[in-house]
């Protein structure tokens, strides 16, 4: 191994180790993010909103009858209301 090799390997090693251990220099912290948070609820809400959109599309093009459409749409709206309540309670 020549000097060039040694220097390149040393640089790769040191910079990687420094990058990796940096978080351990800080004092201990617990998880600042929580999956049961507003972000997760908001994403869940988006999924349900998309489903309502698709349901409307199905109804408009005639692959879904009116009764099924109303029933499924109401169910999705209820689910969204529950999520909105959770989001509201977390923000307040």
């Amino acid at each position: 191994m020549n000097w060039n090799d040694a220097i390149l390997i040393f640089i790769i090693f040191i910079s990687t180790v420094w990058y990796v251990i940096q978080p351990m220099m800080n004092p201990p912290i617990s998880n600042p993010f929580d999956d049961d948070n507003i972000d997760a609820h908001t994403r869940q809400k988006m999924i349900l909103m998309d489903q309502i959109k698709e349901l409307e599309m199905d109804y408009e093009i005639g692959t879904l009858n009116k009764d099924d459409f109303i029933q499924q749409r109401n169910q999705l709206k209820r689910d969204i209301s529950t999520l909105l309540q959770k989001i509201k309670s977390q923000t307040s």
């Binding site: 990796v20 251990i21 978080p23 351990m24 800080n26 201990p28 912290i29 617990s30 998880n31 600042p32």
Partner: peptide, 9 residues
Amino acid sequence: NNDFRLFLT
């Protein structure tokens, strides 16, 4: 241990 620094590391 739930020490978040370990997760970041």
